[in-house]
Amino acid sequence: MSLELQHPAVAPQRLSHQFEQIDQQNDSYIVGMWTFLVTEIMFFGALFVALTVYRSVYPDAFEQAHNALNVWLGLTNTFILLTSSFTAAMAVRSKMLGQRALTLVFLGFTILCAFGFLGVKYVEYSAEFREHHFPGPNFQWSQTVSSAPAQGDLAANSQVALGAPKVGVNEFPASYQPQQLELHKRELFFSLYFVMTGLHAFHVIIGICTLSTLWLLIYFKHPVVDDYMPVELAGLYWHFVDIVWIFLYPLVYLIGKQ
């Protein structure tokens, strides 16, 4: 059971059998997408919690480690993503107004931006792999690390990190190897860096797949995309990917301490 709706401003839409009204259907899709995005927020949120916790515990190690990242490449990527977010919004607008050619242009540009983002990411990652910054057995840290063990690890109750008066334990067992632990703290930073940016890049790849599929469907005038809703939903997803990066860039690349 479907119903064709004609409206001067909005492209025709089909009503699925479970809905009564086109408004109800549109709102359901948008609310449904937002509910999904809520799950995505919680998904990335857990990683931000881990980052915050470890940075508060190991401020110096994280400060040093984050300096090894390339802020300029990060800045470029932020710019690319913001641009793609703008073009995605424009693509949705064109689709709503039924301007097919413009939709294809804006969608195509968004996809290009996404590929550009991944390209920059590739340059960053390869540099980090070359310098053995990928966590694991081959992780290396060439710069000197401070050997003072009191720089607040969990064993020392991390009072330095949190500025509280020293009431904890200052003695360490004989087996304690400050150099080794300092190395691992940097590894911890890079673990979080790779997990967060990697997961974000994975979302970008999903975005590319979705947007490219839509681009092809619109190009071949498939009836599924007569409705603007698929483009709108993909747009919401893409903006969300942008939002994650809006937080990720300053918190990982720019701010070392807190």
Binding site: Q21, I22, D23, D27, M90, R93, M96
Partner: peptide, 18 residues
């Protein structure tokens, strides 16, 4: 099916200006 929701559909999805 209710055919009287044309305006609602248009009003609901506001088209933002460039």
């Amino acid at each position: 099916p209710n055919h009287n929701n044309h305006e609602a559909a248009g009003g609901h999805h506001h088209v933002t200006s460039i």
